[in-house]
């Protein structure tokens, strides 16, 4: 079985509200959407960002948007106090989605 990086199958954008980030993952081709649904679980995404997440802030949630072959992941607490208080260089977490695209999916 071969593996490919998510970046080859999907694109992504990250948004922020308070100290919560949301990351969309959108399949380039409708035929790859079932693969995202199967393999790109909330648990998988949480494991990928384990170092950055705050377990006290709540679990990663996944929403499905089948009409646009997309998933939306909501990551509470990942912005560590939010844009206004965070000490991070990227306080908005704008660059997070790009990191998600490094995940490998089985084909």
């Amino acid at each position: 079985m071969s593996a490919v990086k998510l970046r080859e199958l999907a694109h992504s954008r990250t948004g922020d509200k308070g100290d919560t980030s949301n990351i969309s993952v959108i399949a380039f081709k409708a035929e790859d959407y079932p693969r995202l649904l199967d393999q790109l679980t909330a648990e998988r995404v949480a494991a990928h960002f384990a170092e950055l997440l705050d377990p006290k802030a709540g679990a990663v949630r996944r929403y499905e948007l089948p009409n646009v072959q997309a998933l939306n992941f909501v990551l509470p607490g990942i912005l560590k106090g939010g844009v206004t208080r965070s000490l991070a260089l990227d306080a908005h977490g704008k660059a997070l989605g790009a990191a998600l695209l490094d995940i490998e999916l089985e084909m």
């Binding site: 694109h11 992504s12 954008r13 948004g15 922020d16 509200k17 919560t20 949301n22 969309s24 959108i26 949630r61 929403y63 948007l65 646009v68 997309a70 939306n72 909501v74």
Partner: peptide, 13 residues
């Protein structure tokens, strides 16, 4: 359009 629709959205419903 899809990227922007989901931008800063949590529950799309």
């Amino acid at each position: 359009c899809t990227e922007q629709m989901i931008y800063e959205v949590h529950d799309p419903k």
